[in-house]
Design a protein around this nucleic acid. Structure first.
Lengths: 231, 231
DNA sequence: ACTATAGAGACATCGGACGTTTGCCGTGGT
DNA sequence: ACCACGGCAAACGTCCGATGTCTCTATAGT
């Protein structure tokens, strides 16, 4: 199993060493194969792996290029990984969010601009208007938290939290929420977070975010327990 | 580019739907190819991608199996992603650690067992004994923080922080530390964390961890600045 | 100067062949 | 009855060559 994996490692090495900077173009597959001493098939597998990791960008008919290597791209894989976690480990993910979201929201309280606060208010309105449409609620919920975290200006943090709050996870929580007619309570929690951010109160922002994650965790437990009972 | 990516998505779907539970064996490559309507080459690329993501385990001469899907495996990719981040985004990573490590250490203060505390003490001794060997120091440093975070019992959290504290990043920080003869100061910081954990003082644990990350960040800045000046 | 088109280059996919490794099972001996 | 050995079959690893399809570019024509 050495050949293809070697190729992966070598290409990665060329990138991290700076030999292949972001945007650089790789040699054509046949040439790359010759250069690394393996067949084109092996090179293709290696390239495919790096493409799926958003390290390479393969453009058919054109060539293969190194991506920008932005955190947003490289950390995208975290999301798909979390989607595959089994139910019993989703509570671990939730605990990480419980640790990270409050402090991240607290940091946002220090850095959020008025424009961003206005956008939050708009999303909050959208949320209230869509209080019975699960799909829309999930979308606005995602937008709300994304806006908050993005205001820290830390793309790595934003991508990380986005990955931890995968669509599947969110959908499960909201399903529990809506079925129990508790959507308005959760929307109020968002409002509390908004108020804390608006007043740039770091501690209050932390606290309100913790309350919110805690609620989410509780509903996730409910949903998971219901599913376990089904089986 | 649809065929291979479709295959990836389909296999992932079969896994998350429960059709292929952890440990399950996939059909042989030729059969899988027929079943999904593409050639063996395409299947191999798809399998390789999922293997690199630690979703599949390919055993030559035997067959292909679904891994345990444990967080430790699936989040392993985070580490390699972080290794490829460019220098200017490493500070973002450090900021995430600055947010996450203190609260994680605080949680550890509540959950650490006496046995684990004893192990910490042992690592601390090793560290003092190896105060001039960069390689060893990095190893003990990694072991120290791993032991602390692992005591939370949250494998997801542990893997996440491990990924954020990649070997390269650690090596850079320690290089700066040792060159400036500041290794002993950092070892003292570890001692402070240990004392806080030993007394099960959550707030003190948080504070000492923050001090420590802050020091690391400062040294990282120094190293990065020196490198930038070189160029 | 602009546009349409033809060609070259590059990736996408396929099919088959051969090597190597692994696991299993039957055989034979103890 | 148990164990060690050997051989077979299955499965992955690697390679090769051919063909399809898409992009970009340079050329020719208006």
């Amino acid at each position: 199993m050495a050949l293809t994996d070697d190729a992966i490692a070598r290409i990665r090495g060329m990138i991290s060493s700076g030999e292949l900077p972001p945007g650089a173009r790789l040699p054509p597959e046949p040439q790359l194969a010759a250069q690394m001493g393996l067949s084109r098939s092996g090179v293709r597998e290696a390239v495919k792996v790096l493409e799926s990791a958003r390290v390479l960008d393969v453009r058919r008919g054109d060539g293969t290029y190194v991506t920008s290597l932005a955190p947003r791209l490289l950390l995208e894989g975290l999301g798909v990984a979390v989607e595959l976690l089994r139910d019993d480990t989703l509570l671990e993910v939730m605990e990480v969010r419980r640790l990270l979201e409050p402090v991240a929201t607290g940091l946002a309280a220090l850095r959020m601009t008025d424009t961003q606060l206005d956008e939050l208010a708009r999303i909050l309105e959208d949320m209230r208007a869509a209080a019975d449409d699960a799909e829309k609620l999930i979308g606005f919920d995602t937008a709300f938290h994304h806006t908050v975290v993005a205001s820290t200006g830390n793309e790595t943090l934003t991508s990380l939290l986005a990955g931890l709050s995968g669509r599947t996870l969110r959908a499960r929580v909201w399903r529990g929420l809506i079925e129990a007619n508790a959507a308005h309570t959760t929307i109020d929690e968002h409002h509390a977070i908004y108020l804390a951010l608006r007043s740039r109160d770091q501690l209050l922002a932390q606290a309100s975010a913790l309350m919110h994650v805690n609620t989410s965790e509780a509903w996730l437990r409910t949903v998971l327990a219901a599913k376990a009972a089904d089986v």
